[in-house]
Simulated assay, not measured.
Amino acid sequence: MPEPETAPGTLRPGGRTARVRAAVLRAAEDALIECGFDGIDLAEVARRAEVGKTTVYRRWGSPRVLVADLLDDMAEQSVARAETGSLDGDLRANARLVVRTLTDERQGALFKAVIAAATGDERTAEALHRFYATRIAEWAPCVTEAVERGEVPEGTDAAEVVRAVSAPLYYRFLASGDPLDEAVADRAAHAACCAARAGAYVEPRSSLAE
C-alpha cells in the first residue's frame, strides 16, 4: 500500500479525528515497547486502538510513517524549557528532565525502541533527528539569554551547549549502563556550563563571518 503523500505531523485535526490519532499513537507506543519496530503491525495497532483498520492504513500506510508521526507528537508534547534566570539553573533543569524521561519505565523503553528502529530505517532516523532538533531549539534560548546577561562569551553556539548537557546522559542510557540520577544530571549540566563560560563553544571567527 502506498504511503500517504502528506508528511506525518503536517495536519493537526481536532474532534474525533484527534481522538483517533491519540489512540493510535498510544497503541503504537505499546507495540514499540513490547515488540520493537519490526513487530509493529498496522492491523494489530488498529485493534489495540479500537479503530478501523482502514482508518489506520489510509492515514499512515506503513509502520515507519506511523513511528515518524509518533515522534512528531512526542516533540509537540515535550515539557517546555525552564527559565530560572541563570544558565546553570536552566541547564540543570534540562538535564534533570532528560534523566526523568530516560529513567521512566515507559518513556525509557520507548526511546530505546525508537532509537533502535532509527538505526535501520531512514525515515524513522529523519523523524528522530527532527525530534531532537525541536528539543534543542526549545532549550537553546537559555544559552542565548545567558550571552545577553554576560554569563558566557559572545558567539557561543547555543545548540552545542544544549547537546553537551544531554550527550553524557544518553551515553549512560545506551552504552555504558551506568546509573542515571539527579546527581549525574547536575554534574553534566555543570560541566557544560563551565565549558561554555570558558569559551569552549564559541564558534570560530571564520564561521561567524560567513
Results as ranks from 00 to 15, higher is better:
Thr156Trp: 05
Glu34Trp: 00
Val56Phe: 08
Gly199His: 04
Ala183Leu: 12
Glu145Asp: 14
Leu71Met: 15
Ala31Cys: 03
Ala75Gln: 04
Ala49Thr: 00
Ala175His: 07
Leu71Ala: 12
Asp69His: 10
Asp178Pro: 00
Arg205Leu: 15
Ala117Gln: 04
Gly150Phe: 00
Ala75Phe: 01
Glu50Arg: 12
Asp69Glu: 15
Leu91Lys: 09
Ala158Tyr: 02
Pro179Trp: 10
Ala133Gly: 15
Val143Leu: 03
Val45Ser: 02
Val165Arg: 04
Leu91His: 05
Ala158Leu: 06
Ala31Arg: 02
Thr134Arg: 10
Pro153Ala: 11
Asp38Met: 06
Asp69Gln: 08
Val20His: 04
Gly39Cys: 06
Ala133Lys: 13
Val165Phe: 05
Glu5Tyr: 10
Leu42Thr: 09
Arg58Lys: 12
Ala118Glu: 01
Asp88Phe: 03
Ala125Val: 09
Gly61Pro: 05
Val152Lys: 04
Arg96Thr: 12
Tyr170Leu: 15
Asp186Lys: 08
Ala200Ile: 06
Arg81Pro: 13
Ala75Val: 07
Ala68Phe: 06
Val45Asn: 02
Asp41Gln: 11
Ile40Ser: 02
Ala31His: 02
Ser62Lys: 06
Thr17Tyr: 03
Ala189Val: 09
Glu154Tyr: 08
Glu210Cys: 10
Ser206Met: 07
Arg64Gln: 13
Asp186Gly: 09
Val67Lys: 01
Gly150Ile: 05
Glu182Tyr: 12
Ala22Tyr: 05
Leu71Phe: 01
Gly89Leu: 09
Leu70Val: 06
Asp90Trp: 06
Arg12Pro: 03
Ala113Trp: 01
Ala27Ile: 02
Arg58Met: 13
Gly52Gln: 04
Gly14Tyr: 03
Val67His: 00
Thr156Ser: 08
Ala209His: 06
Leu66Ser: 11
Ala175Met: 12
Arg123Lys: 11
Ser86Lys: 06
Val79Trp: 01
Ala28Gln: 00
Ala125Gly: 13
Glu154Asp: 12
Glu210Ser: 13
Cys194Phe: 11
Ala189Leu: 10
Met1Trp: 11
Glu145Met: 08
Pro2Phe: 11
Ala95Arg: 07
Asp90Ile: 03
Leu70Met: 04
Tyr57Cys: 01
Val114His: 01
Phe173Ser: 11
Val24Ala: 11
Lys112Cys: 07
Ile40Asn: 02
Glu122Asp: 15
Arg64Ile: 11
Ala125Gln: 13
Ser206Cys: 00
Arg123Pro: 09
Gly61Val: 12
Ala188Cys: 14
Glu5Met: 14
Ala198Gly: 14
Leu208Arg: 09
Lys53Glu: 15
Gly199Asn: 07
Pro4Asn: 10
Ile33Leu: 01
Thr119Arg: 13
Ile40Cys: 05
Asp88Val: 12
Glu148Lys: 14
Arg106His: 12
Ile115Gly: 05
Val162Pro: 02
Ala192Asp: 05
Glu44Ser: 12
Tyr132Leu: 14
Ala28His: 02
Phe111Ser: 08
Thr134His: 10
Ser62Pro: 10
Arg12Gly: 05
Val20Arg: 01
Cys193Glu: 13
Ala127Asn: 06
Ala188Gln: 03
Val45Ala: 04
Ala127Lys: 03
Val79Tyr: 01
Gly155Asn: 03
Tyr132Lys: 08
Ala146Cys: 09
Val79Phe: 00
Pro179Arg: 10
Glu105Arg: 10
Arg21Leu: 13
Tyr170Met: 14
Glu151Ser: 07
Arg205Cys: 10
Gly108Met: 04
Arg47Trp: 01
Ala125Asn: 12
Glu151Trp: 01
Ala209Phe: 04
Thr6Ile: 13
Leu71Tyr: 02
